[in-house]
Design a binder for these strands. Structure first.
Lengths: 201, 201
DNA sequence: GTCTATAATCCGATAGAC
DNA sequence: GTCTATCGGATTATAGAC
């Protein structure tokens, strides 16, 4: 604990692997590359993870925990649906960085046929939790009036998640994060401004 | 020409390869699988295509021609913006089949880092043509009133394409084409019904 | 145009020394 | 915990017979 920036080898492997998956997909990166990034030999990875699948499983679990915590926190700290949705849009935008990456769940969905069943299950669960949270958010928005022009909450949730996922893909395809803003602009503009919050950016 | 159902080996290779790419991605299929599907040996593919990249290039060209023709045709035969957009949504939905496939351009965008530069250029061009067509459609919709509640046409176009791409991913992830309908339902409901056209389905 | 055979490379995974 | 070395399999691609 002498140096807070020190991370374990296991964490370094996971960080490098997550970066690789989000940039090139499951079938687009090798453990050799991950090892090179971390500065160890490929075989050393097998001390920490029993297989490539095992490593991906750990990544999905970590990522799910992260996002689930975010969702809980956003719901706990923001009372207005519009503010919750804005936080969601900012969080998903942060995942694309400079237009190089996409969300881990989108990246893995593409290579789904190459993944073990239990990983697919985790991804589908992740998806459903997001849909449920968004549905509740739009339901709340209907009550508190902080999001304009709301239709069926479940349809809104599915449309919102599809929009966000597609916007991430577009941004990475052009390596331009501003495309994410272009695609999500109309949804963002449906959020009613609250005191002290600027929704124009 | 004795049998209209007879296709050339080259076409059969392209059909099998396109199916594979759209189901498993560029790095998720091998030429061996394609050959097996066609009923020839792997090496025979190299008589028709000089490399895997060359094959993919041909697929992208063919797919672009197909969709560009569709866009031209839709603009020529449908006068109302709402009808054009409805055709677009039906066309993109047909690409997912039973929730097993996605659009070739979405499938390849994911594995972009594994593709040659000229293929990426073709994909970006494909994307831009779609954006331009959609922008013009929303612009027209603002004039003829056949789509409700239109914002900035370029933002609408980007949002629409992101939504459609994301909806395809969602549908394939759950192997359920109805998720595409769930995600695009609100957009579809913005289309003003015209005589003889039912937009509720 | 299609075949068999094989080269060349890459990758996931294991064995065993230190 | 990390290393070197290597196995076994898959994959792109080529050579040459038919």
């Amino acid at each position: 604990m002498a140096d807070v920036t020190t991370i374990t080898t296991k964490t370094a492997i996971m960080n490098a692997a997550e970066d690789a998956v989000r940039k090139r997909g499951y079938n687009g990166f090798s453990l050799d590359e991950v090892a090179g990034e971390v500065g160890i030999q490929k075989s050393s990875i097998y001390y920490h993870f029993s297989s490539k699948s095992d490593l991906i499983t750990a990544l999905v679990r970590r990522f799910s925990d992260q996002i689930f915590s975010f969702l809980d926190d956003a719901a706990a700290t923001e009372n207005r649906a519009g503010d919750r949705l804005m936080k969601y849009l900012l969080e998903t935008r942060s995942l694309i960085e400079e237009g190089e990456s996409i969300c881990l769940s989108v990246a893995l969905n593409i290579d789904q046929q190459s993944l073990q069943a239990k990983i697919v299950d985790d991804l589908l669960l992740f998806h459903q939790v997001n849909i449920d949270w968004l549905s509740q958010t739009f339901e709340l928005g209907r009550q508190d009036g902080s999001i304009r022009n709301i239709g069926d909450p479940v349809e809104e949730a599915n449309a919102c998640l599809a929009l966000v996922d597609g916007a991430q893909l577009m941004a990475r395809a052009h390596q331009n994060a501003e495309l994410y803003d272009q695609a999500t602009g109309l949804l963002r503009s449906r959020i009613v401004a609250s005191a002290g919050k600027d929704v124009t950016n």
